[in-house]
Nucleic acid binder design. Structure first.
Lengths: 153, 153
DNA sequence: CGCAATGAGTTTCATTATGAAACTTATCTA
DNA sequence: TAGATAAGTTTCATAATGAAACTCATTGCG
């Protein structure tokens, strides 16, 4: 398998995003990180991921600035993996995935975990809207491409 | 490589969502579908994906009800792949990925395509909020787990 | 109409990524 | 201090992927 073509030079932000976190495990690790997990073994137990793969993914996520590795104890060699600001900014992505999953991947009456506001207990939702706050749907939006003239090879 | 463990029975909607569309190509195909592509060769050219893999992915996305295959011409054997309602409901996921990509994966001054409202030309953004419309951040939200008692093995 | 070009796949084969298990240090804990 | 746990790394078998060649239908087009 010739190494997968990188989309890092693509001018579509979604493509670059998928290039960074679009592999199988990364977003699951990030989900667990949002859930408060920080240690290698926590991720490993939660996801059932092979330890060599987890090791590689944590390294990559750290290299990409989504997680940061901080020493768990002073002078120790063990690490804690924490979300960076960049990582925490993936929150809307997680919420979007969750919302779609709730809508389409659970049977009626089937239980699932929920995302709520800590203080009020209210359900958290996500809205696509224009700058001035009007919610809109996919059919009302369009992609404005980068003009060819501005794209350097 | 023993077949990847499915997360379809996970009670976390994000995990199920990733199980459905979390592989490398699926969301890129969906992105192109949002962009109006419908034909095998369009996807193939746009993504540079191997044709056997594209074939398999289109089959899977169709089986999962995210795309639907409709005959391109009456009596013909060629297909058109169109987003279903379930597929179009992935719009917020795409917007979330795009927004994160714009924020974190482009240098200052580097051009990228933009998502705008067709009629007004206004930028489209995405907000995480409570039911009553107040925007909130990741730190104000928490996951409410399914009580163990309600989870059947 | 007939033939070349294109579209939409499928098959085959080489290579890479993944998973499981065993192995290695380092760090806790009783 | 010894045994248990944490955090990896190495090794090996297997599955997933990619490229290219191949197949068969459809489309142009002269």
């Amino acid at each position: 398998m010739v190494k997968r073509r990188s989309l890092i030079s693509d001018y579509c932000p979604s493509a670059r995003a998928l290039d960074a976190i679009g592999d199988w495990w990364s977003l699951l690790i990030v989900r667990d990180a949002f859930d408060g997990m920080t240690r290698f073994s926590e991720f490993q137990k939660s996801l059932g991921i092979a330890r060599n793969i987890l090791s590689e993914r944590l390294r990559t996520l750290t290299a990409r600035g989504i997680l940061e590795a901080v020493p768990a104890t002073a002078g120790g060699t063990r690490q804690e993996y924490r979300l960076t600001t960049k990582g925490r900014d993936l929150f809307p992505v997680m919420v979007a995935l969750r919302q779609w999953g709730e809508q389409h991947l659970f049977g009626p009456g089937e239980k699932h975990s929920s995302l709520i506001e800590r203080d009020s207990g209210r359900k958290v939702t996500l809205t696509v809207q224009t700058e001035d706050g009007r919610p809109i749907g996919a059919d009302e939006a369009m992609i404005l491409k980068v003009p060819e003239a501005d794209v350097q090879d």
